[in-house]
Design a protein around this nucleic acid. Structure first.
Lengths: 142, 142
DNA sequence: GTAGACGTTGACGTCGGGGTCAAGGCCAGC
DNA sequence: GCTGGCCTTGACCCCGACGTCAACGTCTAC
């Protein structure tokens, strides 16, 4: 199988496959013309990469899974290194979700506050009023 | 006040201030030497920008807040355009948190599955065993 | 007068994951 | 012979928010 066929089979582009090869992730054999040649094993490797990519794994993070498959294991995550990546990713996701949730709550509170302040300003346009309290967002350095 | 002093006061760099100016976000007056000159109002604008940036707002998203302040409002979010950005950001955050949580659960499930499979393989090393079922991650295109 | 700390502009590098040419080789069918 | 489709390599482009460097001007202190 050549590069165009492989790309079509897994739903990606030839450029992407060459990029993976340049990263040492998916090396290819060559035929007499210098054209890249792939087999069914490469299809599996590529599907593993794409699946993890779809989950937000970086390309480098898919490497243990690919090497695990290439070393003969039935699944890419049948190796300690792959499981370690799972665990690291899980921790990252938990941390990120926690931070984003905190930001979400702060932004939500600011939204409520800003809407109330604007409503009061509009009401004060026809009534007596003093200075409004001004709250500030407290930064989140992440 | 010149650029270095302003940068120090809000805890950023001169490069960043010049970048903001190049984006039209924080224009500066010039003194006789061509040096940028800032006042207290610019400190407020910059603090508004930085606060929103810390919350993950893109630079362009801070523009309504800055213009709101510059037009004389007591707070950057006292304008409809700013409130609209709040709302948009809130929706984005909710969507992102939802997607990340789904991914988190899938990765967590895969982790458990992979660990169990490896434990069984280890146990099978000394006992009779057949082929293990192999589950695959189903992709999340987001 | 000279060192050092500031300022200026402009240009290029970074990170990830490729997209998009450009110039050419190889092979099939008409 | 010629067109069309596939392949090759190399090179530059994109996003965002700056970092870093070069080469130079300006101001202050000793």
């Amino acid at each position: 199988m050549r590069i165009g066929e492989l790309a079509a089979r897994v739903g990606t582009t030839t450029r992407t496959l060459r990029y993976y090869e340049s990263r040492g992730l998916l090396p290819a054999r060559r035929d007499g013309n210098g054209h890249r040649t792939y087999d069914e094993g490469d299809v599996r490797l590529l599907e593993q990469i794409r699946t993890l990519q779809d989950f937000g794994f970086e390309l480098e993070e898919t490497r243990p899974f690919v090497e695990c498959l290439r070393s003969g294991h039935p699944a890419g995550d049948s190796c300690p290194a792959s499981v370690a990546v799972y665990r690291r990713k899980l921790a990252e996701l938990d941390a990120l979700i926690g931070e984003l949730s905190a930001v979400r709550d702060q932004v939500g509170a600011q939204l409520v506050r800003a809407e109330r302040a604007m409503a009061e300003l509009a009401a004060d346009a026809g009534a007596p009023g003093g200075p409004e309290p001004v709250c500030e967002l407290k930064g989140w350095s992440g």
